[in-house]
Design a protein around this nucleic acid. Structure first.
Length: 154
DNA sequence: GCCAACGTTGGC
DNA sequence: GCCAACGTTGGC
């Protein structure tokens, strides 16, 4: 089973929204690397860190699970959506989504500052300087560290 | 609000 | 196919 980290701005869609919704579509990816992760590489049952970007405290705040196969992102065909893409045609969609299910909110945030200081997490995909991908890979080793830090109670 | 990083677009 | 210009992301 692979692991992922998925970014969202908490005032747009935060983990509290997913907790309330239970399951939701992860919409709006408009980057080809991320599209390929979502469409081709994720598997049902994979788990992902929910990461809050832009608004402090920035960092990994909880866990969700991938619960659907990839399907075309409906917002790309909706002229009223901010994610509308006039260059994408229904017979050949450019952008895909997965449904995700809420699993848990960490007792504490694993902050970006902590990620950058950590010998292992600092060289992870999300920890590297200049990484702007909204979805990134998390190795098994990194995942275990995130779980430990997110549940630390000392 | 600024700016570094980097993806995308479009001229050639 | 190259690359400059531009737009976006996201940390600070």
């Amino acid at each position: 089973m692979a692991h992922w980290l998925m970014k969202s701005e908490p005032d747009v869609y935060g983990i509290h929204h997913l907790r309330a919704d239970g399951t939701n579509m992860w919409e709006g990816c408009r980057n080809f690397v991320v599209r390929n992760y979502i469409r081709d590489e994720m598997k049902v049952g994979d788990r992902a860190l929910f990461y809050h970007s832009n608004v402090p405290p920035i960092g990994a705040v909880g866990v969700m699970e991938i619960v659907s196969e990839a399907y075309p992102d409906p917002t790309q065909f909706d002229p009223n959506s901010k994610y509308y893409d006039a260059t994408s045609k229904p017979e050949k969609p450019k952008w895909y989504v997965r449904d995700v299910r809420y699993v848990e909110t960490f007792p504490r945030v694993v902050t970006l500052a902590e990620i950058k200081e950590h010998p292992v997490l600092s060289v992870s995909q999300v920890g590297r300087k200049g990484n702007r991908l909204s979805v990134s890979r998390v190795t098994d080793e990194e995942w275990a560290i995130f779980m430990e830090l997110g549940h630390r109670t000392s």
